[in-house]
Write a protein that binds this DNA or RNA. Structure first.
Lengths: 228, 228
DNA sequence: TTCAAATGTCACCGGCATGTAACCGGGGCG
DNA sequence: CGCCCCGGTTACATGCCGGTGACATTTGAA
């Protein structure tokens, strides 16, 4: 999991980066808005943490620039705890906001919560209406007596559908989530993934009850399709 | 957008609920964990805000119970700002965490950010007089018992009519909205779209009650044509 | 290195959404 | 009366999308 960390305070940058690395994240560092945007484009991090007060380009502008390009989760930091700042940051598209000084453990907990919400968390489990997806075990429980073992791609796919709790997820979203930008809009990849997954999950893969297609839109996990 | 608000402090519950209603949310209130869980199952809110300190069942346990069933966005509240509480709450599946006292504006901003991240902030549905157009699902509910599935073009068309809530929309406007510039003023396209849509929506497509023609002008959705 | 699982690529099919053409009937109008 | 514009209707053509099976390639563990 790759995180872009942007702050002009050298010491804080170092100590926060260290904490994140301890927690198992790969950290890209930047010290001003311009180079941060550059690094963002080059490295394509899974999440970005931006300080608001910076030379060159401040955090607000940087957040705006990033949001124009991608939906990457954003957490913003500031020393000031002005109400206006928080509202402005969240309004610009930031997902969370922390006031300095903050505990590294809390930052990490919030990162995890955010990654979980976007379906990118690589630890723990996600449950949905009787089904439990064990991310680390690559398995899904709650269908038959036996847990069903999954492949890494299948887990990433189900994570996204679970995180959206029964609502339709568009094919574009799925493609970018499972394959990243590398996918190149290749729908064939998704067709195969769905096909293979249905062989495992559905009693009758011809008539899907759980993993349903919404034509010209996307896919969804359907609670009505569950036994009982 | 329906929000479940749970807090045992009567005054705070009232004032927060009021602020949320002002912001345009529908609020379900509960004052303890047990009845909150009950209300959650019954109302199926789009988001829940839980206080941690509560009689019967505390916020942690409530969050855990909810998370076993669904991925509904959760925001947790507490007076104590203990680091352990925050980490525990986020670890249990909460998406955000606020320490009392908090500004209602910030709560609302964080709600919006969360809904946006989950994809619920977008115009996912448009309602008009008992009819609900679900854009993501390409479906229309409120006519028969079953939702009616639509095509992408039909959704774009109905989006425009719904947005104009019962007023006539000119053919030119429809053409450019549904087909963009590519339409080239081709009336035939619209004729077909209307015809096919009436086959789905109208009981007697010969005698339209819902999707009416305004000769030499355009089309409109007619509330009088609705049952009941 | 070897082998099996996971993933990517190709080709094809069937169905449906959409586009296109032709025709019908009414009404305004000369 | 005869013309034509309009909206509705029927019929058919076309292309895209999703599903499927077969096969190639990559990856990872033994």
């Amino acid at each position: 999991m790759k995180i872009l960390l942007v702050d002009d305070d050298h010491d804080l940058l170092a100590v926060t980066a260290f904490a994140l690395q301890q927690a198992g994240f790969m950290v890209i560092k930047a010290r001003d808005g311009a180079s941060a945007l550059d690094a963002f484009m080059r490295e394509e991090p899974d999440l970005a943490i931006l300080d608001i007060n910076m030379p060159q380009m401040n955090g607000f502008e940087l957040a705006k620039q990033i949001r124009q390009r991608s939906q990457t989760p954003l957490i913003m930091l500031t020393v000031r705890s002005e109400e206006e700042d928080v509202i402005r940051a969240l309004g610009l598209g930031a997902d969370d906001f922390l006031t300095k000084p903050f505990s590294p453990r809390i930052l990490i907990a919030r990162i995890r919560a955010l990654l979980r919400r976007v379906g990118m968390e690589t630890e723990g489990t996600i449950s949905f209406d009787g089904l439990t997806l064990k991310v680390e075990d690559l398995s899904l429980e709650g269908l038959g007596d036996q847990p069903i073992s999954l492949t890494p791609l299948e887990v990433r796919f189900l994570q996204l559908l679970f995180a959206h709790g029964g609502r339709t997820v568009s094919t574009e979203r799925i493609l970018s989530h499972v394959w990243g930008n590398r996918a190149g809009g290749n729908r064939q990849l998704l067709k195969q993934l769905v096909h293979r997954l249905r062989q495992k999950l559905e009693k009758d893969p011809t008539e899907p009850r759980l993993l349903k297609t919404v034509p010209h839109s996307g896919y969804l996990i359907d609670r009505d399709g569950l036994p009982g």
